[in-house]
Simulated scan of single mutants.
Amino acid sequence: MVSEGDGGLRRSDQLVVFDCDGVLVDSERLNVGIWTSAMRDLGLTFGPQDAIHHFLGRAYADNRHTAAALTGREVPPEWESHWRAEFRRSHDRLEAIPGIAEALDDIVDAGHPVCVASGSIGPAIVRKLEVTGLDRFFGGRYYSAEEVERGKPAPDVFLHAAADLGFAPSRCVVVEDSDPGVAAARAAGMPVVGYRSDLTPAGGLADADVVIDDMRALPAALASLG
């Protein structure tokens, strides 16, 4: 967990667990471009749809192994250093997902405690939410895949967040934008709202309980699962 304490959470409420990339911040389209260039730098014929299929919605540590598997060799340290820097620089250009701030205002006003559980590394989560101004909603309640043994689609980071904040999985709802994230929520025993964007593959999010394509619809979607 990035911060200490539970931020005064009211234990009787339903915990809303947000993924970060593609749900709170519009980083996935930047990530697609960077992963495409990074894999081409390793000599692969690689396009945006390949980046979406292999990398989006997964933990950074798993993505490193995926890159090695796709090339058939360990990735050079200097390659990883260069492209990690590119990801960090991209954070300065981030914007919030349209409608998410309004949705969070309504969700918090309705008494729902909220947290972030992401495949991003901890410092990246902090930076992304600070740049977009969304940090004010979460009180430092950020959980990273670095803190658990397995990244999504394993349920570990969602279960870790729920346990740390004192909620049974049945009292949590996850908001996700990727099939690995939806699978992780399902494995955790948590209902899930899928957010569909123009990056969502055809047929994606089929296993979500509810699918929305406008974040302003999120409060009503959560109410339907309550």
Results as ranks from 00 to 15, higher is better:
Gly226Asn: 14
Ala184Cys: 04
Val211Thr: 07
Gly139Thr: 03
Gly181Ala: 03
Asp156Trp: 04
Ile97Asn: 02
Val25Pro: 06
Val17Arg: 04
Ile100Glu: 09
Gly8Ser: 13
Ala185Asn: 02
Gly226Leu: 12
Leu42Thr: 01
Asp41Trp: 02
Leu205Lys: 01
Gly189Val: 00
Gly47Asp: 15
Ala85Asp: 14
Val2Trp: 15
Ala145Asp: 10
Arg150Gln: 10
Glu74Lys: 12
His112Arg: 07
Arg127Leu: 05
Val193Ala: 02
Ala51Pro: 07
Phe158Pro: 08
Gly140Met: 08
Glu74Leu: 11
Gly57Glu: 01
Ser37Asp: 15
Gly203Asn: 07
Asp26Gln: 09
Asp19Ala: 03
Glu28Ile: 02
Phe87Cys: 03
Arg11Leu: 10
Asp179Gln: 02
Asp92Thr: 13
Gly8Glu: 13
Ala217Pro: 12
Val182Met: 07
Asn31Ala: 15
Gly203Ser: 06
Asp179Lys: 05
Trp79Tyr: 03
Arg84Leu: 13
Ala38Cys: 03
Pro123Val: 00
Ser12Arg: 11
Thr66Ala: 09
Ile34Trp: 07
Leu15Arg: 06
Ala117Tyr: 00
Glu95Asn: 11
Glu146His: 09
His65Thr: 14
Gln14Cys: 13
Asp177Phe: 05
Ile34Phe: 07
Gly5Ile: 01
Leu44Pro: 06
Arg10Glu: 13
Ala117Gln: 02
Arg127Asn: 07
Arg93Cys: 11
Asp198Ser: 13
Leu165Ser: 06
Asp164Met: 10
Leu44Thr: 01
Phe137Asn: 06
Ala161Cys: 00
Lys128Pro: 12
Ala163Ile: 06
Met215Gly: 02
Asp109Ala: 15
Thr36Pro: 12
Asp214Phe: 03
Leu30Gly: 04
Tyr60Trp: 11
Gly166Ala: 10
Glu95Asp: 13
Gly122Arg: 10
Glu149Met: 08
Thr36Ile: 06
Glu4Cys: 12
Trp35Cys: 11
Ala101Ser: 13
Val23Arg: 08
Val210Ile: 14
Val116Thr: 00
Asp207Phe: 04
Cys115His: 09
Val17Met: 05
Ser120Met: 03
Tyr60Lys: 10
